[in-house]
Design a protein around this nucleic acid. Structure first.
Lengths: 202, 202, 202, 202
DNA sequence: CATGAATGAGCATTCATTCAT
DNA sequence: AATGAATGAATGCTCATTCAT
């Protein structure tokens, strides 16, 4: 894309959309979507307000696209861990990839945290799907881990779905908490803490 | 409540305040504070808009008081676990108390989740303190647990502060997730999943 | 109403509503409701924009109330003619009252003309009722006129409902046309022209 | 229509214009010109927005051309009646032609009704001319009718210009009212009602 | 203590219009 | 001759806050 024979108005088309994505992420992650106006987003992206509506139709839709954009990237990264022959290594990879993703797209994580459990969120349906898919992936890998454990049913009453949710929540919060309150905390420390959850399974 | 022409004009004064607390919690937990207007809160509480300002001064202050109100109750409950001679039992109690607290004050939890990691939140300073105090409590008890563990440094590279944060996050998310997506999930299941985090320490 | 013990801010309450009524009528009659903004109305009424919304809830509702306000006055005046023992005199009175009403509330008439036959008007339901009631009144009096006519069914194929509609339309248009294009034309001339419609019945 | 790569590239050029005319008429008649956007018109016509501006220069000009287009057709039809040797038959023909024209171009009539007496309409000058010419035609034929009436000055104080206006208004309203509220009402019934206006002259 | 009418800055959204292609 | 991305002024509406009573 961009600069086909470099005319004066370079990059045009799609360009605006990308700039708006970047600007929105930045601002919304910082203050929350309610506290950011379309005017601000447009200004930050260096386009006119009309362009936001030309490209997204509404603020709501812009945010919805922000979600799908982020989730696509996240899943791409999670894939890496899912197929690892060693499920423990796999989960470890998934967690560290997630933490790094959160560091790269901090506003995506923040948006997710803020909206996922807000029952009347505008994006509730889409978020529900996102949540389900991530937890499903974690659940799958937890099953493989617990199956590898030979004899004793390690933890008799341990519901894997609940555990998967705990891991999902801990990762999300840890990823965000690190950026906001503990910039010195390494991804490895966080991975260690999350993996502690699985100790009972091994 | 209500008691028009009731005996001894009991309660009064703080009556409006209480009604406003209840109404705010309800509405804000459902839709987020930005999506709830002072008008709505006043109407839901059955008082006039002016009364909100008379009692709280501003919407912001109302929410701030919502936070202190909730956190006071939460800490009261956490106390129970802190002093348990058996730190594992103590943590278990703290977690289950938290989960039950979240079930009773769902909107408090939601508000907390939404705002805690929003770097530019209006209540950031207060939230930072709340977060710190809870994590400190968890850290303390984790220390006692890991000290009880005799010989081998169970997990050499396991940072207790990070682990405490993970437990805090997992509990918060699990408590909320249960209400929104898994009403059938028991507190015990959730406690089990959170306690799994400590397996590595034992 | 107004001035209870004449305080500094006199007239308060309801006053705003009246001022807004007057201002709206003026502006909307001149340029049409689409071409008049709420800002303009507020400014013309000497109140803030918020006051418009406090009192009416929406621009649409303001216009709806403009309609009911106008139609109430119109019907009050039409009553006079309805009960006249001589139906011809009665109709004549109704027409002249209508023409004078249009002269006093020109914007009401203009609004009516513009919206009544706009199939997708927001006020279509209310307008349909207004139209029906006026035409019904005219129909009634036409029936009395034609009954008075002794022998020969004056006009065999003359549908009274259609005739009533024609009289309604002619009066509305004549009333408005007079103000806009023929200020010199008297109410009597117009009444004469409208009454010509009934010649066939007599 | 459409014919991509059709033979002899017929029509073209004015093709877009025609499609835009049709689409505008349809939409504007239904909802009023203010409530229809250029986007909608372009979409309905199956052309791009730019094409509207290429062909008409502005929305205002498009509507102006809509008026001249409609009025040309109307006058063509009115001619038929004007030259009838029997002025009564002639007027009857003019009225029925008008009613049929309104049925064929309902949005033209609606546009006319809405704008003609709106004093500050953008098209006021053009509309004034249209109105004048139609009323002039009616006046002429009324003169011929009243002259034919031999002896007694049928109606001493009947101003023919006012009567012509009444007939114009009644026809316009009746034509439109029939379409919107009385689809079962025949053109003949309406003609009958309008001609009742002339009874006094005969 | 409590009320509710009034305010005005701020917001999401619409839309006629332009212009480079 | 036609396109459609981009614009920005204008619009209807919301809402936290004030204040006279």
């Amino acid at each position: 894309m961009s600069e086909t024979r470099a005319p004066r108005t370079r990059v045009r088309a799609t360009d605006s959309k990308h700039r708006l994505f970047t600007a929105s992420m930045e601002l919304i992650g910082l203050r929350g979507h309610h506290a950011v106006s379309v005017d601000e987003i447009a200004k930050a992206a260096g386009v006119s307000k009309g362009t936001v509506y030309y490209n997204f139709g509404s603020k709501s839709e812009l945010i919805a696209e922000l979600f799908s954009y982020g989730v696509a990237i996240l899943f791409e990264r999670l894939e890496k861990g899912v197929n690892d022959p060693d499920p423990v290594k796999g989960l470890e990879l998934m967690v560290s990839e997630s933490l790094e993703f959160i560091a790269e797209y901090p506003s995506f994580a923040q948006l997710w945290i803020s909206e996922q459990w807000q029952s009347q969120s505008e994006w509730a349906p889409a978020l529900k799907v996102m949540r389900h898919e991530v937890i499903f992936l974690v659940h799958q890998i937890l099953t493989r881990i617990s199956e590898n454990k030979s004899q004793a049913a390690a933890a008799p009453s341990l519901d894997l779905d609940t555990l998967a949710t705990a891991i999902f929540g801990a990762t999300l919060i840890l990823g965000r908490d690190r950026l906001v309150f503990h910039p010195e905390r390494s991804v490895q420390d966080c991975v260690g803490a999350v993996m502690a959850f699985t100790a009972a399974l091994r």
